[in-house]
Simulated assay, not measured.
Amino acid sequence: MHLVENPWVWAIHKTKENSCKRGHKKVYTHQDSCLLKALRLPLTQILTFGKIWKASLPKRLNNPLLSFYCTNNLFLFISFLSMKESIYYPSRDDPDSVEICYKHIKCLDPQTPLTSPVMNFYIRYLHQQASSSRATFHFFNTFFYNKLRNVVSEQKNNKKNPFDKLRRWWKGVHLLQKAYILIPVNDMFHWSLVIICIPDKEESQPIVLHLDSSGLHCSRSIFQNITSFLKEECCYLDHEAGLSDLPISGYWKYLCDHIEEKVLEVPQQKNHYDCGLFVLLFMERFIEEAPERLQKKDLAVFGRHWFKPEEASILRSKIRKLLMEKFRNESSKK
Rank of each mutant, 00 (worst) to 15 (best):
217 H>K: 06
195 I>E: 02
229 F>N: 02
222 I>E: 03
189 F>L: 11
201 K>N: 13
207 I>A: 10
206 P>V: 03
216 L>F: 04
190 H>I: 07
225 N>H: 13
209 L>F: 01
194 V>S: 09
219 S>R: 11
199 P>V: 05
186 N>I: 12
202 E>F: 01
202 E>G: 00
188 M>H: 14
195 I>Y: 03
188 M>V: 13
211 L>M: 15
192 S>C: 15
201 K>V: 09
197 C>A: 15
219 S>W: 06
203 E>P: 00
211 L>T: 06
219 S>V: 15
217 H>S: 08
189 F>S: 10
186 N>K: 14
229 F>L: 04
231 K>M: 07
230 L>N: 04
209 L>I: 07
199 P>D: 08
212 D>F: 04
219 S>T: 13
213 S>L: 02
224 Q>W: 07
213 S>V: 01
215 G>W: 08
207 I>R: 08
188 M>A: 15
209 L>K: 10
224 Q>L: 11
211 L>S: 07
186 N>F: 12
211 L>A: 09
218 C>R: 12
188 M>F: 13
198 I>C: 08
218 C>Y: 11
202 E>P: 00
226 I>C: 11
211 L>W: 03
225 N>S: 15
230 L>S: 06
201 K>W: 00
221 S>K: 14
220 R>G: 00
185 V>D: 12
207 I>E: 07
198 I>S: 01
190 H>D: 00
230 L>H: 02
185 V>N: 12
200 D>F: 10
212 D>I: 07
198 I>W: 00
193 L>H: 04
190 H>T: 09
194 V>W: 01
205 Q>G: 11
207 I>W: 01
197 C>M: 05
210 H>D: 04
222 I>C: 02
205 Q>K: 15
226 I>L: 06
199 P>G: 11
187 D>N: 12
189 F>W: 10
193 L>Y: 01
204 S>W: 12
223 F>E: 01
191 W>S: 07
206 P>W: 01
230 L>F: 05
207 I>Q: 06
190 H>L: 04
212 D>A: 10
210 H>G: 01
193 L>S: 08
207 I>G: 06
220 R>F: 14
211 L>Y: 09
206 P>F: 02
192 S>H: 03
212 D>V: 07
201 K>R: 15
211 L>C: 13
215 G>R: 09
199 P>C: 10
209 L>Q: 05
209 L>P: 10
195 I>L: 06
195 I>T: 07
200 D>G: 00
222 I>F: 02
205 Q>L: 13
197 C>R: 03
195 I>V: 14
212 D>N: 11
186 N>D: 11
225 N>W: 03
193 L>D: 03
220 R>Y: 10
218 C>M: 08
225 N>Q: 13
206 P>R: 04
189 F>M: 06
207 I>Y: 03
229 F>C: 01
196 I>M: 05
224 Q>S: 14
225 N>F: 00
198 I>E: 02
229 F>T: 01
222 I>S: 02
225 N>R: 09
215 G>T: 05
188 M>K: 15
205 Q>F: 02
231 K>P: 00
219 S>Q: 15
219 S>G: 13
